[in-house]
Design a protein around this nucleic acid. Structure first.
Lengths: 333, 333
DNA sequence: TTGTAGGCGTTATCAG
DNA sequence: CTGATAACGCCTACAA
């Protein structure tokens, strides 16, 4: 069943059918109704490929993320999809993993399918070496590219980021205010946001006259892994009275470590997480964390995206602040 | 840049270019190389819409789920996407929410885009009233439809399900063996899998000579909500020495409830979750749960899907058993 | 091995 | 307001 069939049945030309299909006002009501009826009766659905071919768009945006099962990214993806759907766009999901080669392949696939835009969720997409980011710049020349929680200056891509550096600095500040003198910082990867958080940590320590060197660690993912990692740190003789973490999962691991070792939280060990995810309230005691406003992130990104697609000029960088949430793993003031 | 440009530059016909594109062996090596070079030099990418129009497929499958930020569904979606990608298929993600109307709309969208297949993740897609499932049957006539953790007999859709009823029965059995005489069962929704689990609970109690009536409850989602719900149950005078839950989040709420009320786990209250998600090991004590083998679920579903697309005949129903994982919220035998 | 030509189902531009 | 007709870019018999 195609537009020709409908036109024949309705006794009009395909042009008229197409007009009805696209809500043109240059069709008499009688004709419109007749065509509509025929379509209804025959359960006609326009062919999206043909339409895509003519219009060169299928109203689809590609969402890339390293791992959509990550509790934080999962939320991002959910919110993005819902927001895009509201705007009449479908979402192509791509879980690239962490290897550059795979990321490029996925991006290529999406481009070859003529998606209307690309959203890269999570800071795993910014590589260390700037030449490795070339493919992103190339992509940005073809379609709008949005980086969520990542910045790539001069790439032509738009970024929406939470001020992670500031949030971690404030978290560290507050721990120090609450009596910590030997905080450590655990982070999961040296990604853009990982490095931002690290810099916030170092800045806070420096401002308080504490030496930040040798107090930040790349930590393997996973709750038990994190607990073990802290045990090994302790075994090596490192002293720490607070553990800042780049995400709630690491913080949950720190809680496990304290509970297993009989360390009282928050008296002997203060802990902070990041993201305000389910994990932060699943732990007992509940974890002090930073809410990086994932909902705001997603609605803003999609709103900006729609503006860009509408030909409007929007800022290449948008940054917003997080919201600290004090719970039971930090001392009261 | 299209196939005509390439053909002109290479001094061949578009048919030859197309053959090269599709890896036909009816092209001389010299010609092939020449064409390939031209493509390379010009960064040519075939237009997916045009190809889709001719072939009537874009190698895309639609993944529907109610809420991809759910920790369990997020994993399902991740695994499905990776598996589909391996097979050369892209994934269109749709988060439908829980309203029937929205589910239908999404499914319609996917169908109108001529996806090659549909995967419905989670048992939220089977409605109570069978007439409400009509749209699924209709869809199943057009493309292969896969139900993950849901069964719709006579729909023409394929289902892959974990034997949740059995798993919960075994969980209940083991709690009773471990001394529980007054277990309760908390579940989140009366969906297909919710009802399966409930039946497993009731069967276990009945087999052990315990009356299952008035011991199962629909519980609001969320950790603190669950904790409050159990408090209200207690306040109403209900006695219980074990709490089985239809997912780990509810179980985490039960742990909170016990911890807050000073009830010793597992001596005074045994708890079991479901899904073996991160939440089950984030809690302290760690939660006894059932691993419903999400990885197996997804690889099996995609493997079956590929067979169906390849024209093979596969069983309409596939069921597999879960794996019980005893942790610290249940007593040792 | 290569080329020609028709078809896939729309949209859009002109005439009328 | 309506109708021909030419794109859109690729695939694939069928011919050579």
């Amino acid at each position: 069943m195609n537009i020709y069939d409908i036109s024949r049945l309705a006794g009009v030309s395909i042009a008229t059918v197409s007009r009805v299909l696209n809500g043109s006002d240059k069709v008499s009501d009688a004709t419109r109704q007749k065509v509509l009826d025929i379509m209804e009766q025959n359960g006609y659905t326009p062919n999206a490929f043909a339409r895509g071919l003519g219009l060169n768009t299928m109203r689809t945006v590609g969402i890339l993320c390293a791992d959509s099962s990550d509790i934080y990214l999962a939320k991002v993806i959910y919110l993005l999809e819902r927001e895009l759907w509201k705007q009449g766009y479908a979402s192509m999901l791509c879980c690239t993993g962490y290897r550059l080669e795979e990321k490029e392949k996925y991006l290529q696939l999406l481009l070859s399918r003529s998606v209307d835009a690309l959203i890269l969720a999570g800071s795993q997409f910014i590589e260390e070496k700037s030449e490795d980011n070339g493919y992103l710049c190339e992509a940005a020349k073809k379609v709008p590219v949005f980086l969520l929680n990542g910045v790539l200056a001069g790439s032509g891509a738009y970024s929406v980021v939470c001020d992670d550096a500031l949030a971690v600095k404030e978290l560290a500040d507050s721990l120090i205010e609450r009596g910590s003198r030997q905080p450590v910082f655990l982070y999961r990867s040296p990604s853009y946001s990982g490095k931002q958080k690290l810099s916030g940590f170092r800045r806070s320590l420096a401002e308080h006259g504490l030496c930040p060197d040798g107090r930040s660690f790349l930590c393997p993912a996973g709750i038990p892994e994190t607990a073990r990692f802290l045990e090994s740190l302790q075994a090596e003789g490192l002293c720490f009275d607070a553990c800042l973490s780049s995400d709630d999962e690491l913080a949950a691991g720190a809680v496990k470590y304290a509970l297993a070792g009989g360390k009282r939280i928050p008296d002997e060990l203060q802990i902070t997480g990041y993201n305000n995810s389910l994990l932060s309230v699943c732990s007992t005691p509940e974890i002090t964390t930073a809410d990086n406003r994932v909902e705001f992130l997603c609605t803003t990104a999609v709103s900006l995206l729609m503006q860009v697609l509408g030909g409007k000029d929007v800022p290449e960088r948008t940054m917003y602040s997080a919201n600290l949430i004090h719970r039971a793993t930090t001392r009261p003031l």
